[in-house]
Design a protein around this nucleic acid. Structure first.
Length: 667
DNA sequence: CACTCCGGGATTTTT
DNA sequence: TCCCGGAGTG
């Protein structure tokens, strides 16, 4: 098995002498190292799979890794092996230790929309900007492992002070709801382990070897968790690439990479520099560009895949022309090289840039898929159902109570809910509990009380069944009881209702299958659902189509031929990163973004930018990105850079183009 | 007064 | 695409 690895890869797989950091350049086979190491630990060192945990950031990465490990094990058992995301691991820990933190095991998980509503309730405003900003600030504090009290003490600016107060109330609300948000899934285990050494030891014994993917994306909390779990011995392998750190804006801290070297003086560092993806020219471009960033660890990618095509840089008159150009070039290239649509990707900085490209691809009848898109579990119809499940699992979950009580409409109106809310707050009980209290019931009309108790009784009945009946059966019964299908067709266009109902059926099918396969009950599944973004297996049978993606979403992917569009000052680097007084680190992150874009390409790279662009009504001149000047002149063909009618210069241009072609032929 | 329709503008995203 | 704000309408 080890023979399929190159020297540093093999070394990384075999090294068990202590903490190991693998600096894995783009396309250098990092997943291969992690998967082989898992298998190596099991087969060569007798590790019980249940003592190994591989941790990723996304479900997709976890799924891929799991599949590849299973493939390598060729059917041999890997029972108990943990391959999950940070958040799922946190959930697993919280579930097991919930009572130590004063939570019941069936706590709810609030997604960002839910937590937004909680913040909105506290601030009692509809100012979305302010709410977003506050929610984001709270999240930042949580990721930095700063409590509400600490935040309040540290707050210097007025905004921070106000936000810290919201933070306090927010935490109180969550506790009352017996709910945690995404950040808590990491933060609370860390807090727990700080306070309960015995619980920590138990988990240290369980997870004896950790492998962490995309280490450069960890935030302070995640790093703390890793450090706690591995203990002073540091039996772990962290795999990352500081040059691909593009998530500083959401709390990821590359400093964690440096921190490793100080926290673990015996840290072994192995670099993976051989790239199995791109041609020499593409890698030279990537290397020279990123050389402009300060380096944590010196690293230079190389490949033996041949010199490859020159990198094309094409200016366009304007955005529309750019889109047209990309479509035409793509078409010509496909025709000439007999490639598949899926060999192409168009990458950009901001989502809106996809619009014009989409338009062009449509008119040219080129099939495409756009990255991102809203996730399956975020759809309203799914969240409706999940709110019922959450309430059944945890009757303290007031946000779920409100949604379930009002969708579909069942005679419970906003006034009733408001009064219920006031009463519940006064008595310090949940909405659900308050609904049954005589004190509340006596103050309300007969019909209101009846409608509320009918609803609560229904939830009660479902609770009774949830622990014993099969998930599928219960869900079916629930749907017919609340008449959800009729509700959809009443409130939506027939077409929309049909798709939504289809989604509901998909959801039920998924839950049923999951429930059977993993022998978990419906209520545990409800927690898992909160962490899912895409329906598993949805991407299967992916059609042959050009991929449109933001640079962020493209990380980890590779394409034969890449178009990088809108490479202008103000877009890449984005103007918010270059404004006066902005930290240079911001431009460095933009540079890494460009680096990520370049290193997605296997065989060819085409960069485009606009000479002018429409901005608030009138045309504005655009400057080509500073990053273009940081590419190696020998490897690029900057079309029309010397914009001149001077025949001498034109001749020179042509000569250089010919030189490029010759170099290409030789390489 | 509230609602709808249209045009313009836009960081990046996961759990 | 989605979201926001301004103008226009019932």
């Amino acid at each position: 098995m080890l023979s399929k690895l190159n020297d540093p890869q093999r070394e990384a797989v075999k090294y068990l002498g202590g903490p190991l950091l693998v600096l894995a350049g783009a396309g250098s086979g990092k997943t291969r190292v992690i998967t082989h190491k898992v298998v190596h630990l099991i087969e060569q060192h007798g590790y019980d799979p249940k003592h190994i945990a591989a941790i990723t950031f996304t479900n997709k990465a976890a799924r891929e890794m799991q599949e590849r490990v299973s493939g390598l094990l060729e059917g041999k058992p890997s029972k108990g092996l943990t391959v999950t995301t940070f958040h799922s691991l946190g959930l697993q820990i919280l579930r097991a230790e919930s009572q130590l933190l004063g939570y019941k095991p069936r706590f709810s998980i609030l997604d960002s929309a839910d937590s937004f509503k909680v913040v909105a309730d506290i601030l009692a405003t509809t100012d979305k900007q302010l709410l977003k900003k506050t929610q984001w600030r709270i999240s930042q504090w949580k990721n930095d492992f700063i409590t509400a009290d600490m935040a309040l003490n540290q707050a210097e600016e007025e905004f921070d002070h106000a936000a810290a107060k919201v933070y306090q109330l927010y935490q109180q609300a969550l506790k009352a709801y017996q709910a945690v948000d995404f950040d808590d899934l990491i933060r609370l285990p860390v807090e727990l382990f700080e306070q309960h050494r015995d619980a920590l030891h138990k988990w240290q014994l369980k997870l004896r070897y950790l492998l962490i993917d995309e280490y450069q994306d960890t935030n302070a909390c995640q790093y703390k968790l890793v450090k706690q779990l591995t203990g002073p011995e540091g039996m772990f392998t962290a795999v990352g690439d500081d040059d691909q750190a593009i998530y500083a804006w959401r709390g990821a801290d590359v400093e964690n990479l440096r921190q490793l070297t100080t926290d673990f003086p015996n840290l072994q560092v192995i670099k993976l520099e051989q790239n199995y993806r791109s041609t020499v020219r593409i890698l030279r471009a990537a290397n020279t560009l990123i050389a402009n960033n300060p380096k944590l660890f010196e690293k230079k990618l190389w490949s033996d895949l041949g010199i490859g095509d020159t990198i094309q840089i094409n200016p366009a008159k304007d955005e529309e022309h750019e889109a047209e150009m990309v479509a035409m070039k793509l078409l010509a290239h496909k025709f000439e090289h007999r490639t598949r649509w899926a060999d192409y990707a168009v990458l950009y900085r901001g989502n809106h840039q996809a619009r014009l490209i989409e338009q062009q691809l449509r008119t040219q009848k080129i099939p495409y898929t756009v990255s991102g898109g809203q996730s399956f579990f975020d759809r309203a119809e799914i969240k409706d159902l999940v709110s019922y499940l959450r309430l059944i699992a945890n009757e303290d979950d007031d946000p779920a109570f409100i949604r379930a009580a009002t969708t579909p409409k069942k005679g419970i109106g906003s006034t009733t809910l408001e009064r219920l809310g006031e009463y519940a707050a006064q008595r310090h009980v949940s909405l659900f509990e308050a609904a049954y209290e005589p004190g509340f019931q006596n103050s309300m009309g007969k019909k209101q009380v009846e409608d509320l108790t009918t609803f609560c009784d229904f939830i009660n009945r479902m609770q009774q069944r949830a622990t014993k009946d099969p998930a599928g059966e219960l869900l079916q019964d629930m749907l017919s009881a609340i008449q959800y299908e009729a509700f959809l067709y009443d409130s939506e266009e027939p077409r929309a209702a049909e798709t939504k109902w289809g989604n509901v059926m998909d959801f039920i099918g998924w839950m049923t299958r999951k429930g059977e396969a993993e022998e978990t009950n419906l209520l545990q599944l409800t927690q898992t659902v909160a962490l899912m973004s895409m329906l598993e297996g949805r991407e299967e049978g992916e059609p042959d189509a050009v991929k449109l993606s933001t640079l962020h979403a493209a990380k980890g992917l590779e394409f034969g031929h890449v178009f990088l569009i809108g490479v202008e000052e103000g877009i890449l680097p984005h103007h918010s990163s270059t404004a006066a007084g902005t930290d240079v680190a911001r431009v460095e992150e933009e540079r890494r973004l460009m680096y990520v874009g370049i290193t997605r390409a296997q065989k060819s790279l085409t960069i485009t930018y606009c000479r002018k662009r429409k901005r608030s009504g009138d045309w504005e001149q655009c400057e080509p990105s500073r990053f273009l000047d940081e590419l190696p002149a020998d490897d690029i063909n900057h079309a029309g850079k010397i914009s001149t009618t001077d025949p001498e210069l034109r001749k020179a241009q042509k000569a250089s183009r010919m030189a490029n072609i010759r170099a290409m032929l030789e390489g």
